[in-house]
Amino acid sequence: MTSAVPGLWPPTAQEIVFLLLGAVVAGSALLVVTTRQIVHAALWLVVSFGALAGCYLVLTAEFVAWVQVLIYVGAVVVLLLFGIMLTRAPIGPSADLDSGNKVAAVVVAVATAAVLVTTVVDGFRTAYTPLVPGEGAAEPLGRSIFRNWVLPFEALSVLLLAALIGAIVLSRTDIGGKD
């Protein structure tokens, strides 16, 4: 495989697209964690997740991309918006969205990034794979799930049920403990 590896530079067209989408992902994610308006953070999250779905498409994982769009962009962000609304978060800019832990957080985050990027670059500098369209389509993925991954899938459904019941018990105020 290494014999056919092209260099990192110049990037191929796919890679250029991926890098552009990646820049959007990272940039909007950065805005999510830095914006002063809590609703904007949710909206930037939509952008970030959407661009990430694009990244999945470039990586030929189309089914994952659509699930990402459906669940994350569709359901999760809406859920978050409900949460923002129900907790009466201030609409509009507020100065105190960041805690006093900010400096330490920056240090730790930068250190994490440094360690991870160093490791990843060091480990996968020469890893290369040609992209084959259709690998991650719904049909092979579905076959794989229902042939090889049935048991985890069923377990996951139980987990979902438990989460559903838990969320209901937690949110309803007329179900109390034995006190």
Binding site: L8, V33, A109, V117
Partner: peptide, 20 residues
């Protein structure tokens, strides 16, 4: 497609999440 691109992107995204 070089694997290092998505890997680095994932690392950055993770670090941003840590910061958040």
């Amino acid at each position: 497609m070089h694997v290092v691109y998505p890997a680095v992107l994932a690392a950055l995204l993770f670090s941003i999440g840590v910061y958040g």
